[in-house]
Design a binder for these strands. Structure first.
Length: 430
RNA sequence: GUGGAUGUAGCUCAGUGGUAGAGCCCCGGAUUGUGGCUCCGGUGGUCGUGGGUUCGAUCCCCAUCAUCCACCCCA
């Protein structure tokens, strides 16, 4: 029985397939990250992508856009409210607390994986996107702030991005100072309510600090006279910030102080920073983080200082791509394409391929499969990206030999006894 | 969530109110055992989807889905 044409099923909006052509870039980037984390003494942590909804509501802030309208929240079969994680910090804190990692000890952790936010997709902004994040717990001083910033700076160095990113820096003060300033600011804005535009009125309850960033000329004068965050920093935060700047100066890291830099998530305090680029249009923030000393306590743990950041992998890959910074050799492919020239040579080729793979574990060898004319076999050898083709036909089979042909250079082809191949290939590939 | 642009072959794109084309890719041949260059031939399309107007719609209208850009927000 013929069925009516099934409705075409496609990927969920804003959720992308990573195709074979893309994955080498990701592996290149992920490899750099993995190496770097080890060099800085950070350990990887992996947590589930689903958590109880309350975890995010409590940590990110009830009135943030993320919690109010961007979370993938659904009911489990038993009625619990679950949420696909919109960011990594909350899960990290939860896991660390749950397993006693914060009990009288410090931690330097990193994670990597998919996050989910129901936003309108755009270039560099997707509903399922991927972050690499760093979390430190138990370090109070500005040295660890500097450490995580230096780590990120070194990653740009490794990737060749240093010239294309800018570090913006600010301090929000202690949680108390920030909260107090926020109140002062809201009071001030309330007094000038008639000047506020629609956007700002909305931000008044969600993110009043953002109002300072408004470009509306009608509000410029009023904003000019608004109370300043820097004047409301507590003494300790002020010193913390100064010390951090001294450390970054000493390490030769350039930064721009941006007093309007405000992280959207409620849990941030004191140091906040952002790495931005001009090369990606309006989605220019490539890495952002800061200090969240109050978060562990807020989630029911003991007061624990914490610093971290998250970076958007899609945005970084996009950046690497537009700047053509992924090296050719990172783009995959294989070294050798082994092809039987006719059907009769299939078995010989297959067993030889397996032998070579046993003898040369580093060798990337693709065996021709699928038959076809000799011409098409050669075409596939070319397409495979291999530098060397190994051919086995009637002549070779009768003498236990193999023809070795160079695909990427003008060089006479050779014929070798099969037994001599491992040594020969070893030389050529190395 | 708001505003705008765009959906035609696997990819990049032309095109017309009378049921479609190029380049690349793929396959075959010129070249019985030598890919990349050249030449010749071939496969491949419910013109995003669903309605409407019309004798007739890929084209006009409406809706819907998706992508892109900006806003918002964020990594």
């Amino acid at each position: 029985m013929s069925q009516p044409a099934a409705k075409k099923i496609q990927a969920i909006r804003g959720m992308n397939d990573l195709l074979p052509g893309d994955s080498p870039r990701w592996q290149f980037f992920e490899g750099k990250v993995r190496q770097l984390m080890a060099r800085y003494g950070f350990d990887e942590i992996r947590t589930p992508i689903v958590e109880q909804t309350a975890l995010f509501a409590r940590s990110i802030g009830e009135v943030t856009d993320i919690v109010e309208k961007e979370m993938y929240t659904f009911e489990d079969r038993n009625g619990d409210s679950l949420t696909l994680r919109p960011e990594g910090t909350a899960s990290c804190v939860r896991a660390a607390m749950e397993h006693g990692l914060l009990h009288n000890q410090t931690q330097r952790l990193w994670y990597q994986g998919p996050m989910f936010r129901h936003e309108r997709p755009q270039k560099g902004r997707y509903r399922q996107f991927h972050q690499v994040g760093v979390e430190t717990y138990g370090f109070e001083g500005p040295d660890v702030d500097a450490e995580v910033i230096l780590l990120s700076a070194r990653l740009w160095q490794e990737l060749g991005l240093t010239q294309h990113v800018t570090l913006e820096l600010n301090s929000l003060g202690s949680a108390e100072a920030r909260a107090a300033y926020r109140e002062t600011l809201v009071d001030y804005f309330e007094q000038h309510r008639e000047i506020l535009d629609e956007d700002s009125l909305r931000r008044l309850s969600s993110n009043p600090l953002r109002i300072l960033d408004s470009k509306n000329p009608a509000m410029a004068e009023m904003l000019e006279n608004a109370p300043r965050l820097m004047d409301h920093l507590d003494q300790e935060s002020r010193e913390h910030f100064e010390q951090l700047k001294t450390m970054l100066d000493a390490a030769g890291i350039h930064y721009v102080i941006n007093p309007r830099l405000v992280r959207g998530l409620d849990y941030y305090c004191r140091t906040v920073f952002e790495w931005t680029t001009q090369a990606l249009g309006s989605q220019g923030t490539v890495c952002a983080g800061g200090r969240y000393d109050g978060l562990v306590e807020q989630l029911g743990g003991k007061p624990t200082p914490a610093v971290g950041f998250a970076m958007g992998i899609e945005r970084l890959i996009l950046l690497l791509d537009t700047l053509q910074l992924v090296p050719e050799e990172a783009l995959g492919g294989c070294d050798v394409y082994l092809l039987p020239m006719d059907e009769a040579a299939t078995l010989t080729a297959l067993t030889l391929a397996e032998q070579l793979r046993s003898q040369l574990p580093e060798l990337r060898l693709q065996l021709h499969c699928g038959g076809g004319s000799f011409k098409s076999r050669m075409k596939k050898a070319d397409k495979s990206g291999a530098t060397i083709a190994l051919l086995i036909g009637e002549d070779e089979r009768q003498t236990d030999a193999v023809t070795l042909k160079f695909l990427r250079e003008e060089r006479e082809q050779q014929r070798h006894p099969q037994a001599a191949l491992p040594e020969r290939l070893q030389d050529l590939i190395a």
